[in-house]
Amino acid sequence: MKKFVTALSLMAISMAATADNAQITTQLKKLGATNIEVKDSPISGIKTVVTNEGVLYTTEDGKYVLQGKLFELTDKGPVDVTGKALLATLESYKNEMIVYPAKNEKHVVTVFMDITCGYCQKLHSEIKEYNDLGITIRYLAFPRGGLGTKTAKEMEAIFTAKDPAFALDEAEKGNPPKELKAVNITKKHYELGVQFGVRGTPSIVTRSGELIGGYLPPKELLSALESVK
């Protein structure tokens, strides 16, 4: 009898959570959000909601919504935890990334980049210095002008080339691919960048999901990564 009562209680909790999630989804769809995924958050009574436009936070009844970054206050300072909700999706794209690995790897960062971005080109020209400091660089495509641009189609050709790293190296030297491809992988990368809150390139995502906006020289990036380690 005791086992039966426990089972009923667990079922009721599960059904309540599902009902709450359904209500949240319904409310956000009214606002035009799509690809909605409701998750728990670090705050009691608040849900994390991943949408096509980014990460939101709502009350469990879906009546109130918060938009913006969520920070955990630690002894070492505030830590951005919003990106953690997107890490599983980020890692699911690892076979589509162009990776420049460090031999003595200490850190891994994922960089949303655009081949026409001057600071992306500067970062790429210093790949060896990042690698020598133990920082592995992983690239995802983020054409700043949007998915309908020539750059987006060039980046699709680069990321789907037989040797993507070579194709990217050539593009960064001023030799972009002549063949343009319909956007597919680039679309996925771009949409994930939007969810992370990327507004420009390069944008760097740490292993913990924290977003560092803009270019940082190798030693400064290492210092930043050590500070959020």
Rank of each mutant, 00 (worst) to 15 (best):
M1H: 15
T6G: 03
S9P: 09
S14G: 10
S14V: 12
I24W: 00
K29G: 13
K29D: 15
T34E: 08
N35T: 13
P42Y: 12
K47M: 11
T51W: 11
T51D: 08
V55S: 04
L70K: 00
V79F: 12
G83H: 02
G83I: 00
K84F: 00
L87S: 09
T89F: 03
L90Y: 06
S92C: 07
E96K: 11
I98A: 14
Y100S: 13
E105S: 13
T110C: 11
V111A: 05
M113F: 08
D114Q: 14
Y119T: 06
E126Q: 14
E129P: 01
R138D: 01
T149A: 05
A157D: 06
I158K: 06
F159Y: 11
T160A: 06
A161P: 01
D163W: 10
P164N: 00
A165L: 07
F166T: 14
A167I: 06
E170N: 10
A171I: 05
A171T: 03
K173H: 15
G174D: 07
N175V: 13
K181Y: 03
V183C: 05
H189T: 04
E191Q: 15
R199S: 09
R199Y: 02
G200L: 07
T201V: 09
P202V: 05
P202K: 03
I212Q: 08
P218E: 03
L225D: 04
E226K: 11
K229A: 13
